[in-house]
Amino acid sequence: MTNNDAGSSIAAPAAASSNGTASTSANKDNKTPFTVKAGLAQMLKGGVIMDVTDAAQARIAEDAGACAVMALERVPADIRAEGGVVRMSDPGKIKEIQEAVTIPVMAKARIGHFVECQILEALGVDYIDESEVLTPADDAFHVEKAPFSVPFVCGCRNLPEALRRIAEGAAMIRTKGEAGTGDVVEAVKHMRTVKADIARAKAALQEGGDLAIRALAREFGCDAALLRQTAELGRLPVVNFAAGGVATPADAALMMQLGCDGVFVGSGIFKSGDAAKRAKAIVRATTHFRDAKVLAECSEGLGEAMVGISVNSMKPEQKMAGRGW
């Protein structure tokens, strides 16, 4: 059984209103069934979602085989360089990108900024990323995501954080990593932490059953039913992508071999020398992530990678991953 096979048992979390055998009734009160929200993420698996800032970049991404694009005003590397308060994109930009491509278009909202989310939903974006890359708008609450018809993806550093987001209604999870650095170390750390947490939950369920799960849920500060479901599945109950620092085909394959379902690439593509070539190479590496011969081929002659910043050299307050809880 491969890492990816583990994805086969994905089912809607217990906290959601519907499960794998969804019925029409949920549709009638204009509430999108969780199956439909999580289902789009399942269709993105094995793919690469690319940050783009305009229609031209979106077309390069689509032509390179991106399975979706993330529309934003500035890529994280520029956000980092320029500083200031970073907000949702101009709706005009998002519309321009929606017009340009046929693949799903995602967009970012600030943590806790539910009105930005309402606006993005009205624009008809396919997924909202409630993202730590933007400046948080609420220091106590994330957006209550379940009531929205549009599905949400959220970042995490560990399992408890992921399950808190899923309990709020997130239908897809990604590692936070450290956006805009081109340094994959934090994404790796977050993925390994999630896996170690899942292993603990599995052991707790096996050894102590519900009692141990409840105790662990208290320690984790997360929903016990979702924790139990995770322990039973042996993986997150929704799709989990890598994000934050992926810059090369090898980085993408590394995250896939660690068990991620797919990859977000932010600054890594359009801050590099030959964006189209690098984008294609990362898409190919994500499909053939176990085939070292293919990985060698697609790593060759890509030109300059983004310069990047070593996360080790950063002060804690410079890191975005610490935003949210």
Partner: peptide
């Protein structure tokens, strides 16, 4: 399977 048809055909061609 389902997925993005544009991605499927590009990756199929690459492969």
């Amino acid at each position: 399977p389902g997925g993005e048809s544009t991605t499927l055909s590009l990756v199929a061609a690459q492969s």
